[in-house]
């Protein structure tokens, strides 16, 4: 679905990504893991088109995304930080994004998460009065709102209570069941164990492992993902 080829990115003198090759398989949940500053968010933002690569290219279903914006109609993006305009209500924010997407999207919004997360009443309040967790729920609703073929979730469950977090994880698994592709990052290995089919391990701007979770466990002879990742981190490249 997503083909990342020889992608490089530097911010000033800091080389964030160094010749990253990565192919994200369709209808699977791929987790990007790695220590802080490994380039996870930069990579995700590149796929969305928020950051441009210095070199290399990214293809969406075989088509280079370049400077275009059409591919974003097929992406649902949940950024790491949920901050919205202070004086708009949640409902207005959703209406705005729907307007921006065009008339075709207005008729078929996926509002199941609004009910599942129980934020119907919060949507009529100004966004500035919402708690961090509630804003994160709004953030999740936005990502799922337009039936995206590709869900890109940057630390989706950060700041959510266990109930909301479980609801969101159910929604992610249901999306995969419906044939959608999911790309996510998280620092919670238990959560990834539950969700991820594939894992891409990023360290110092390079992909050190990419493949199925069970394969990583087999190679490192570990029984859970956290220990398997720790093993890769200690040994560098996975064998």
């Amino acid at each position: 679905m997503i083909d990342i080829r020889r992608v490089e990115k530097a911010f000033g003198a800091q080389r964030v990504l160094q010749a990253v090759d990565l192919a994200i398989a369709p209808a699977r949940v791929t987790a990007i893991v790695g220590p802080n500053g490994a380039g996870k968010t930069t990579l995700i933002k590149m796929i969305v088109g928020l950051v441009r690569p210095d070199a290399g290219e990214i293809r969406f279903d075989g088509v280079p995304i370049g400077d275009g914006h059409a591919h974003r109609a097929r992406i649902g993006y949940m950024p790491q930080i949920a901050r919205f305009p202070d004086n708009l209500t949640g409902a207005e924010l959703l209406a705005m994004l729907t307007d921006l997407r065009g008339a075709a999207c207005a008729a078929r919004r996926d509002e199941t998460l609004i009910g599942a997360l129980g934020i119907e009443r919060e949507l009529s309040k100004p966004l500035r009065v919402l708690s961090g967790g509630t804003r994160q729920k709004v953030n999740a609703v936005i990502a799922f709102l337009f039936h995206p073929e590709l869900l890109i979730l940057d630390e989706p469950t950060a700041g959510l209570d266990p109930v909301a977090s479980s609801t969101l994880k159910d929604a992610i698994l249901a999306s995969r069941g419906a044939g959608r592709t999911v790309l996510l990052t998280s620092h919670n290995m238990g959560e990834l164990e539950e969700l991820a089919d594939d894992v891409a391990f990023l360290l110092d701007g390079c992909v050190r492992y990419h493949g199925p979770v069970h394969e990583l466990k087999r190679r490192t002879r570990q029984s859970n993902l956290e220990r398997a990742i720790a093993e890769v981190m200690l040994r560098g490249v996975a064998a």
């Binding site: 969305v48 928020l50 914006h69 974003r72 950024p79 930080i81 901050r83 305009p85 202070d86 997407r101």
Partner: peptide, 17 residues
């Protein structure tokens, strides 16, 4: 500056910069 994250969110929609 306060709208930075909001701008990112809008940029993630199919709109021209």
């Amino acid at each position: 500056y306060n709208a930075r994250e909001f701008i990112e969110l809008v940029l993630a929609q199919p709109v021209r910069r």
